[in-house]
Design a protein around this nucleic acid. Sequence first.
DNA 1: CGGATGTGATAATACGCATCATCAGGAGGA
DNA 2: TCCTCCTGATGATGCGTATTATCACATCCG
Lengths: 351, 351
Amino acid sequence: MTSTGRRRPRQADIAKLAGVSQTTVSLVINDRESETVRIPPETRQRVLEVARSLGYVADPVARSLAGGTNRLIGVYTFESMFPMDHHDFYHPFLVGIEARAEALGYDMVLFTSATGADGGRSVYRDGVNRLRLADGCVLLGKETDRDDIVRLRDEGFRFVLVGRRDIPGDGVAFVGADYAKATEEVVDHLVALGHTTIAYLPARTPSEPSDDRDAGFTAARTRHGLRTDGLVVPVDRDAGPARSDVEGLLTAGATAFLAHESVVALRIHAILTELGLDVPRRCSVAALNDPPDGVPGPELTCFRIPRREMGALAVDLLIRQIESDEADAETVTLPCTFVAGETSGPKDRSQ
Amino acid sequence: MTSTGRRRPRQADIAKLAGVSQTTVSLVINDRESETVRIPPETRQRVLEVARSLGYVADPVARSLAGGTNRLIGVYTFESMFPMDHHDFYHPFLVGIEARAEALGYDMVLFTSATGADGGRSVYRDGVNRLRLADGCVLLGKETDRDDIVRLRDEGFRFVLVGRRDIPGDGVAFVGADYAKATEEVVDHLVALGHTTIAYLPARTPSEPSDDRDAGFTAARTRHGLRTDGLVVPVDRDAGPARSDVEGLLTAGATAFLAHESVVALRIHAILTELGLDVPRRCSVAALNDPPDGVPGPELTCFRIPRREMGALAVDLLIRQIESDEADAETVTLPCTFVAGETSGPKDRSQ
DNA sequence: CGGATGTGATAATACGCATCATCAGGAGGA
DNA sequence: TCCTCCTGATGATGCGTATTATCACATCCG
């Protein structure tokens, strides 16, 4: 049965069986009729039938090399795509990307971030160049490598970033979320509840998303005339806030806690509860981030990042670039959705 | 702006600058010295320096084309890959697949469904096997389409199924899990706890995984001499068991409930609790399936399917097929891990 | 009947790299 | 001197596809 040695069929095979040239096969397959090239319906039919009977599919590699396209969009994550703990981070994006790609008839290539045999970690050297196999690429990741992006852009490769990035020289397409405005909304909510002394716990390591939140917070703070002395404590996401940090902020008079990371916010909630302080009756807690699905704990006051929509939109932008054959650096920013949650309430007047 | 102008350097560019041939460059870059090919250190140095100064990186596309393979493994799911509710079903497999693919330097193509107007998913779009884009493919899914599989095999396409499948004519590679043995273990556990009247709730629609569990159950039942009259109720996964079903089984004397699907088991647990029957003091409940991560509820007595390992192993088998250039239908069956859980306990003697 | 026009293709080539077979030239041996 | 062996390379070719330029043949018109 099944001759194991059977190679993938090539255009040449089809050509032989259909009694035409490889050129003709290529022309038929790609629907390349023009003024100078004409294929009569009968020949076309014959070629298509043979192609089908052989199960022919163009070799994406050869096609790329020859300058063609593959209806293949790449997805590259700067961290591992399916890590055990992050998975709820990427998953919503992938849902959006897959749905949109499918709707538009594209398949997806997930590029694994191969670390080189020489042990070299340079993502670019080993990973990114393979991206060329795809017609274009959606880049995901918190720790996007700036140099890689610049280089990709300068190579004229088509891609769309998910997440705003300040790239020197600009000219990079991205889909972002409006963290600044969403942050303002959360602060407004807290202020409306009577909180005027808000502890602020930003990410320790700055990044664009973090900067946007800072900008939003500063705007809202200024607008409401809130004080900040002794109320700002940068926190490392993984290490989390120390109990002493929380105590210090309480001493400083904080009645509400606002953290960049939902994980941090939940940790604060836990610490407050340990200290015997009721949330939200005694203190409010809010995050500038939505907790991943399935994480236990109270429903946080926060905002929802429209990840699925961002993924879908990134595909849209990308495919537009690909099909229009011009690499314009379109950028889109989507709004986040405020979530009132159950961890914020009116300021405790008895204090 | 985007300075699209500067082309990537090619081996020919290096060759010109170093005063050697393109062949020599290729040989140096790839460290291809052999008996018949020798490059003196001084030439080698020169070439490497020029290459470095130009920032040369081999074009993976061209490299693939010359090598005959594109280092691309396909992943095809017969259901949508990233559905909102199933995601915990596929995710562990993908984790394993990605990890192994990355380790072996392969990228993954996720084929989007191209769901036909009839709702049915097929590998064949317009009668063309799109999967051929990859060097080979891992096929996932509960509702595998037999016809597609037979056709793929007869085409000589390389693929590995995850999940045992009885395909007429055989010759199909798969990675399975030993549901039969795992089922026996669960039954043994229940019997050891004193249960002799066990209600059995298999899947309503038969499939290989379901058959395997049936086989295991039958074997264990026979071995222990358990009765079955009035104790077997097929259940549809989505519809779930009716309250009357559970009551009927209780009337029949059941002291333990064994369901194929963890969802069903959890539902039974809920019904029993509603009826005021304590689990596991009054009744035991077990599943032949592990609940997805993040599903709330008690820790079920069940067994864990080694999904991650299955994914990884599937990639191994596939790549072995690809690289050895022979399509042998290797099949592997992995053991499942018994989970004692908290929903089973000694039979209530007071009954 | 000769030239113009139109039709249905195809040969040649490029894409960038890997590899096989071959070669020039010098050293060494008989 | 002629032959062999070794060193240091290189020319040619293939991988599968896309594209451009060209061609053979028929038909139509004057």
